[in-house]
Amino acid sequence: MPLYRIAVGTPGEASQPDALRAALAEFFSMIIFVFAGQGSGMAFSKLTDNGSNTPAGLVAAALAHAFALIVAVSVGANISGGHVNPAVTFGAFVGGNITLLRAILYWIAQLFGSVIACLLLKYCTGGMVTTAFGLTEGVTPWNAVIFELVMTFGLVYTVYATALDPKKGNVGVIAPLAIGLIVGANILAGGAFDGASMNPAVSFGPALVSWSWSHHWVYWLGPMLGAAVAALVYDNFFIDAALEPLSTSDF
Rank of each mutant, 00 (worst) to 15 (best):
P2C: 10
R5W: 13
G9W: 10
P11T: 11
G12S: 13
G12K: 12
E13S: 11
S15G: 15
S15I: 15
S15P: 01
Q16N: 14
D18I: 11
L20G: 02
A22P: 03
A25G: 13
E26F: 03
I31M: 13
I31H: 04
I32K: 02
I32H: 07
F35L: 15
A43I: 14
A43Y: 03
A43L: 14
S45N: 14
S45M: 01
K46C: 00
L47P: 00
S52F: 10
N53P: 00
T54H: 00
G57I: 07
V59I: 15
A60R: 01
A64N: 04
H65S: 11
A68L: 07
A68Q: 01
L69G: 03
I70Q: 03
V73N: 03
A77V: 12
I79S: 03
S80L: 05
G81C: 10
H83V: 06
V84Q: 03
P86V: 15
A87K: 02
T89G: 09
T89K: 02
F90W: 15
F90T: 15
A92I: 13
F93Y: 15
G96Q: 07
I98R: 05
I98G: 09
I98S: 07
L100T: 13
A103E: 05
W107R: 02
V115G: 06
A117W: 12
L120S: 12
K122Q: 14
C124H: 06
C124Q: 12
T125D: 09
M128G: 02
V129K: 13
T130V: 15
T131Q: 14
G134R: 04
G138D: 00
V139W: 02
P141R: 09
P141F: 10
W142T: 03
A144V: 01
V145M: 05
E148T: 08
M151A: 14
F153S: 05
G154T: 10
G154V: 10
G154C: 14
Y160T: 11
K167L: 09
I174P: 00
A178P: 00
G180E: 12
L181I: 15
L188W: 00
G190W: 08
G191A: 13
A196K: 01
F204T: 11
A207Q: 04
L208M: 12
S212N: 14
H215Y: 14
Y219T: 07
W220P: 09
L221F: 12
A231I: 09
Y234Q: 04
I239H: 04
P245F: 04
S247K: 12
T248Y: 06
